[in-house]
Design a protein around this nucleic acid. Structure first.
Length: 430
RNA sequence: GUGGCUGUAGCUCAGUUGGCAGAGCACCGGGUUGUGGUCCCGGUUGUCGUGGGUUCAAUUCCCAUCAGUCACCCCA
């Protein structure tokens, strides 16, 4: 009685078999292409980092509860990266003296968080990270927002399927300070209440606010402020508006890229002004798809230089839920375009030569590895998705000919072997 | 970390007044020797998630545990 190891992947992690991988590759290929079209260049980095880089700025929840940590043989405390932003900030700091700012960088990496798996959330996810470093200009925001819409369009999404909700912590702070009258030391806690605004009943929010020292009148002003549109910004002092990149966007021609929403807060502590989240409009995925923001100080963890960053992370789990919900997932790609089948084992080397010719011409071509009856082999070729089979039989071959069968419509023609690539090119073109 | 639901062949599932397990699909082979997608025939596959308990006997009842799933917390 043998005891085998489990075949299931570790909880919250996923195997990607070729069929799923094909779908993923197609989707990500579209995204990479759009990102690179904006002039972003790809980087990568280690999955292990010093645990400290997350404990400083990522937020208590992540550092205390969701970090995979380990101690190496030298006693160093390490963590599996739960997100990429601290890593890229580290790389920027390390290479700041040789980079020409601003830089546009992107990556696609796996990140780990120790969480309880459920819809939209696993323990290892694959996240695309897109960041601009070295510019305070609101043009960073505009460029990234435009990029996001292009990325969504590239995978088939239309603007009615999702919404890009944007806020600015500078504006939020201004509202809390100057309109609601929240003391500076309570801003963060009140922000956390706002983060939960859409999920909690009003009584709960009121109770939380009261506990933080807000009067009923203040809570009323908070409610009104959070319901208001961008006209509210007129009530804020000039110096607050001055410090906000978003305020300038909301009054300019790029305004229609985003929806201003004072409820967007985000948990990462390192965000300093603009914050945004993309939401699926379908109620089946009632959570944010992905998001990002502006962080002025993160590079400062590693260096005296102050290099601002602005960017976002897009995780695969929520993205694929979105694509699935909207029927936007592509079909897996066929394993091969063409299968070359010898009807007798003695014709294997001849088939190999024909296959080689087709591969030289760029076709994905496979040969059976085990001898089988022709009918079986054609059936197998069909199931793998090949649209064409080339059949080598002794009679045809002795006169320099082969049979080419179109599996889509069953048409078959016997042609001279020298013409195989041009004939198939013609066949595949429609 | 908290709570609800679920756990039988590779997949989707059926299977109780407790008696040593089934279907469809998939996979493999055959229906005469070089022609698939339909049809017919045959075959492989399960410690009934795991460990205990009750019982003459448990897939079926009880407990625990693990896993999946949904919600909460939080977030991507």
């Amino acid at each position: 009685m043998s005891q085998h190891l489990p075949t299931a992947p570790y909880r919250g992690t996923r195997d990607f078999l070729p069929r799923e991988m094909s779908v993923r590759q197609q989707v990500f290929h579209h995204l990479y292409e759009v990102i690179e079209r904006y002039g972003f260049v790809r980087y990568d980095g280690p999955v292990l980092e010093a645990a400290e880089i997350y404990e400083a700025k990522s937020g208590r929840e992540i550092a205390d509860l969701q970090l995979y940590t380990l101690t190496d043989r030298g006693g160093r405390r390490l963590a599996l990266r739960p997100e990429m932003t601290p890593s890229v900030a580290r790389m920027i700091a390390a290479n700041a003296n040789s980079l020409q700012f601003p830089v546009r960088w992107y990556s696609h990496v796996n990140c780990h968080r120790y969480e309880r798996p459920q819809r939209g959330r696993v323990r290892e996810h694959w996240q695309i990270n897109v960041d601009v470093f070295g510019s305070e200009s609101p043009r960073c925001e505009v460029e990234i927002f435009e990029l996001i819409h292009d990325m969504m369009a590239s995978v088939g999404a239309t603007r009615d399927m999702y919404v890009l909700r944007v806020n600015d912590r500078v504006l939020l702070e201004g509202i809390l300070t100057h309109i609601v009258g929240v003391p500076a030391e309570r801003i963060r806690q009140v922000s956390a209440v706002i983060d939960r605004w859409e999920k909690y009943p009003r009584e709960q929010l009121l109770a939380d606010a009261t506990e933080l020292g807000l009067t009923d009148a203040q809570f009323g002003r908070l409610e009104d402020a959070l319901k208001a549109d961008e006209s509210l910004l007129a009530n804020l002092p000039d110096d607050v508006i001055e410090r906000s990149q978003l305020a300038r966007i909301l009054t300019g021609p790029a305004k229609d890229l985003v929806t201003y929403d004072p409820l967007i807060v985000r948990a990462f502590e390192y965000y300093t002004s603009t914050v945004f989240e993309v939401f699926d409009r379908d109620p089946a995925n009632n959570r944010s798809l992905f998001g990002g923001g502006r962080y002025s100080d993160l590079v400062g963890l590693f260096s005296d230089r102050c290099i601002p960053g602005f960017g976002f992370g897009m995780g695969d789990v929520t993205l694929f839920d979105f694509l699935n919900t909207h029927g936007l997932l592509p079909q897996p790609r066929a394993e091969a375009d063409i299968v070359v089948i010898p009807t007798q084992d003695t014709l294997y080397d001849a088939a190999r030569a024909v296959a080689h010719q087709l591969r030289q011409a760029g076709w994905r071509t496979s040969l059976p590895l085990e001898p089988r009856k022709l009918g079986k082999e054609i059936g197998r070729a069909d199931k793998t998705g090949a649209r064409t089979v080339v059949i080598l039989g002794p009679d045809d071959w002795s006169t320099g000919k082969i049979a080419v069968r179109n599996l889509t419509n069953g048409d078959q023609r016997t042609i001279e072997v020298q013409k195989v690539t041009s004939y198939i090119a013609e066949l595949m073109s429609h």
